[in-house]
């Protein structure tokens, strides 16, 4: 249900300081999101793909993630060209395919894909725990870090409780069908899931208090930026700058 397919690895990207990766990912996403011209957008997509290759992401796994978003993009490709208005690129019966609509859909698709792949390559390549600690070290609010780290724990908790309950139900020969018994069982399943998770969450909180927790997390790992990190960050800085120039600089193309 919940795993981190990209988190472990020994690629070039995996060895870059997580703090640098987070900052670069955020800045890069901002710039790409604000970009409208096709030259910088295409460039961004190529850069994102290159990052994915550098991180040695398995194409099949990346595709599985992209598919979800592509469903949404498909919808945009249907709606926007038909609703944006004249001038038309072509006509189908009474309806026109708007040139502006097609361009807009293309822009959104490029941006979304580029940002998603880049985030997968830079941020999904660290375990969530590392993300939490890295956020803590770039002085993000403690509440946010706490949220990230505890969400991680509680998602696992929910999944565990879910699987335990499902296993118990299966082991006793339950076969889902369209009948009252099935509905009642599912209702119990969901009810139990919530009740048990809440009870367990309370006991985890107890355990934390037993060990002197006062609402503050400490970070054990010291991230040390390697020379590769600085080179990578400088390169990405130049690339981001270059995208910005293509977008907002003097019209050369």
């Amino acid at each position: 249900m919940f795993d981190e397919p990209f988190a472990t690895g020994r690629s070039f990207i995996h060895r870059i300081d997580p703090r640098h990766r987070i900052v670069i990912a955020v800045v890069y996403s901002f710039v790409v999101a604000l970009t409208d011209r096709f030259a910088p957008l295409t460039g961004a997509l190529i850069v994102s793909l290159a990052l994915a290759a550098l991180a040695r992401l398995r194409p099949a796994a990346v595709w599985r993630r992209l598919k979800v978003v592509f469903g949404f993009l498909a919808l945009i490709w249907i709606v926007l060209p038909l609703t944006t208005g004249t001038p038309f690129l072509a006509r189908i019966g009474p309806m026109g395919i708007s040139t502006a609509g097609v361009l807009l859909a293309a822009r959104i698709s490029l941006k979304t894909t580029a940002i998603l792949i880049e985030f997968t390559a830079l941020v999904a390549t660290m375990p969530l725990a590392t993300l939490g600690h890295a956020l803590g070290q770039i002085k993000m609010p403690e509440k946010l870090v706490y949220l990230v780290l505890m969400t991680y724990r509680y998602i696992h908790l929910l999944e565990n409780e879910y699987q335990r309950t499902v296993r118990a139900i299966r082991l006793r020969g339950f076969l889902p069908g369209t009948n009252m018994h099935t509905y009642k069982t599912y209702a119990y399943l969901i009810g139990m899931l919530f009740v048990r998770s809440v009870a367990r969450a309370e006991r985890i909180e107890w355990a934390m208090r037993c060990r002197g927790f006062r609402g503050r997390f400490y970070h054990l790992v010291d991230f040390v930026p390697t020379p590769a990190t600085w080179i990578f960050s400088a390169m990405m800085g130049i690339i981001i700058f270059w995208i910005a120039i293509l977008e907002w600089g003097p019209h050369l193309w």
């Binding site: 375990p127 969530l128 725990a129 939490g132 780290l149 505890m150 991680y152 724990r153 565990n160 367990r200 006991r203 985890i204 107890w206 355990a207 934390m208």
Partner: peptide, 9 residues
């Protein structure tokens, strides 16, 4: 139940 006790990554 040790599941109650452990919460760090």
């Amino acid at each position: 139940d040790s599941d109650d006790q452990l919460f760090s990554p």
